[in-house]
């Protein structure tokens, strides 16, 4: 009897737990991790520019993903509200995914096609200026803190190793594009890019 063994030997307890818990890795995780090429083949995604990438890291650092999703589910009213539904290939350059798990604020998958840069600026400085009952924090410091651009090249090199097709030329020019720009402006560039790469795919 199995129950006799794992209750008597610490070795069997460890091994049997690992084996039973690992089935899900083999069936659920591994088959999805080896499909990378297949997913890329269907993708419309374009790599972010250096400034947009810097903005994305501001998004990450401030924890925007804590309250905003970037995953439009394929449900009619949701598409009506948030734009085109995500497809599997959309996020191949999203290291890591920023789908989020909570919509305290609206979904941002396609936000780049909705507002002007000026609106984003006012909203980030004080959300209640444009949405009176908004509960979003204000982010005034984003417009006083300036990016040095010192780490952008190493970021792009790491991403290239992971599969984002940045060219050597793009990487060489990156620092000058980022240097001196405020965090807020970089973030706005990132936000304005969201949803543009898939804009041609308007089946809904």
């Amino acid at each position: 009897m199995l129950s006799k063994d794992f209750t008597q030997s610490v070795f069997i307890l460890i091994i049997s737990t690992i084996v039973v818990a690992s089935f899900s890795i083999l069936v659920l995780i591994v088959p999805n991790l080896v499909r990378t090429d297949e997913i890329i083949a269907t993708s419309l995604a374009k790599p972010l520019t250096p400034l947009e990438l810097a903005g994305r890291d501001v998004y990450i650092s401030e924890g925007c993903h804590v309250c905003h999703t970037q995953m439009v589910r394929g449900i009619e009213p949701e598409v009506k509200r948030n734009g085109r539904a995500n497809k599997e290939g959309d996020d191949i350059y999203e290291f890591p995914n920023l789908w989020g798990s909570k919509r305290t604020g609206p979904d941002l998958t396609n936000i780049g096609r909705k507002y002007s840069e000026q609106w984003q600026r006012i909203h980030l400085m004080n959300p209640r200026k444009v949405v009176p009952t908004s509960i979003m924090p204000a982010y005034p410091w984003l417009f006083t803190q300036v990016l040095s651009g010192d780490d952008i090249e190493s970021k792009m090199r790491v991403l290239r190793k992971l599969g984002v097709p940045y060219t050597e030329n793009e990487i060489d020019k990156a620092r000058l594009q980022v240097k001196g720009v405020t965090k807020g402006e970089a973030l706005i560039q990132y936000l304005q890019s969201l949803g543009n790469d898939t804009a041609s795919d308007q089946e809904h």
């Binding site: 999805n32 991790l33 499909r35 990378t36 997913i39 599997e88 959309d90 996020d91 191949i92 350059y93 999203e94 290291f95 890591p96 995914n97 970021k155 790491v158 991403l159 992971l162 599969g163």
Partner: peptide, 8 residues
């Protein structure tokens, strides 16, 4: 950066 991207 996570070694996995997007859906994966």
């Amino acid at each position: 950066y996570s070694v996995f991207s997007g859906a994966q």
